[in-house]
Amino acid sequence: MNKFGFTLSVPRVIDYDKNDRSVADLIAAKEPTFRLCIECGTCAATCTAGNFTDFSLREINVLLRRGENEAAAEKINRCMLCGKCILVCPRGVNTRNVLFIARETLSKTNGHERL
């Protein structure tokens, strides 16, 4: 089978089929507005924590939706929960709850175990 050379080094590819997207599904079930994100980045622009550390809610959102849970888990605790993002999100994503559920879920699964 042609692997397009991806096996040569540590794969950079997002392996959509292998990745565990159950965390994203769980978040979407508990907070349906999670699905509404269009990655505009307003949340990250206004973010209080983002000024200080490498934290972007938009990035976390996309990582979770692709099943890159480990990468998301690394950064997710940096949120200060100030809620500015809720006030600017043009899609009405309930950002704080998304983050809250994601944190709880990822802390239970350590980011990589299946739920």
């Binding site: 907070e31 929960l81 809720i86 009405g92 309930n94």
Partner: peptide, 8 residues
């Protein structure tokens, strides 16, 4: 901001 769950 006290409520995390209530939708917009």
């Amino acid at each position: 901001l006290g409520n995390l769950i209530l939708n917009p």
